Amino acid sequence: MTKTSPENNGLRAAIIPVTPFQQNCTLLWDDATKVGAVVDPGGDLDQIKAAIEEVGIKVEKIVLTHGHIDHAGGAAELKETLGVPIEGPHGADRFLLDNLAKQGASYGIPARPVTPDRWLDEGETVTVAGHVFDVLHCPGHSPGSVVLVNHENKLIMMGDVLFRGSIGRTDFPYGDHDALITAIKTKLLTLGNDYAFICGHGPTSTIGNERRTNPFLT
């Protein structure tokens, strides 16, 4: 588990790499209240629950950025274990969440279908322990991928839209490279260079770093 602290406004984050894909499941919480959320519990729930216990937080919700197995595979079971609602992704990923068991069988990851308690749309917000994240619908990697932006702390939960030095895969039957690039350029690169992001895999980065160096955006 890797802890990362955004600005000093009480919001904290910890990354737990899970599944054979080393997906960055993330805990977000408020340092004062110790209330928080689990973002993208793809699997390896024992590791996620151990991290929750280590940090000592009370989880109020699960948030999904999109419907792929490595991000959502553990959501149904974790929801039952914690007794909390699931928010996200956009409803266009319903078909992926409905077929999580089939997705999992292809990769040896146990999973069950899951229906979020709340689908997310562009312009809505998600609140984690009082910290507000704006919802951006950024299709391309999957039709219902969402990105969550907390302006107070300049922190972005990126999912698999943008990575350090790369972008989300679009070689799926439902992938759309042009839509992904358009979403990144019109919705993410308009943010300040000092906005940091936690992506679905690999190291964190900033909007400024990707604007300058990402070969897919130059």
Rank of each mutant, 00 (worst) to 15 (best):
E122A: 14
V147S: 07
W29E: 07
P89H: 06
G74T: 06
W29M: 12
E152F: 02
D46I: 12
A183R: 02
N24F: 09
M157G: 02
K185I: 04
S205E: 03
G83F: 02
W119V: 07
A92C: 02
S142G: 14
V147N: 03
Y107S: 00
D40W: 06
D70L: 01
V35Y: 13
I62H: 00
H137D: 10
P6V: 11
H131K: 12
T4G: 01
T206L: 04
P173G: 08
P20R: 13
C138Q: 04
L188V: 10
A14T: 04
S106I: 08
R212M: 14
A183G: 11
A51Q: 12
A183M: 06
G42C: 11
N209F: 13
G42H: 08
F95T: 04
V128T: 10
F216E: 10
L82K: 04
L11I: 12
H71L: 09
K34Y: 13
E152N: 11
L155R: 03
K154Y: 05
M157W: 01
C25A: 15
I86D: 04
M158L: 06
V35N: 14
G104T: 05
I57F: 05
G123E: 14
V35F: 13
E53G: 08
Q47L: 15
I184R: 05
L27A: 11
Y107L: 06
V128R: 06
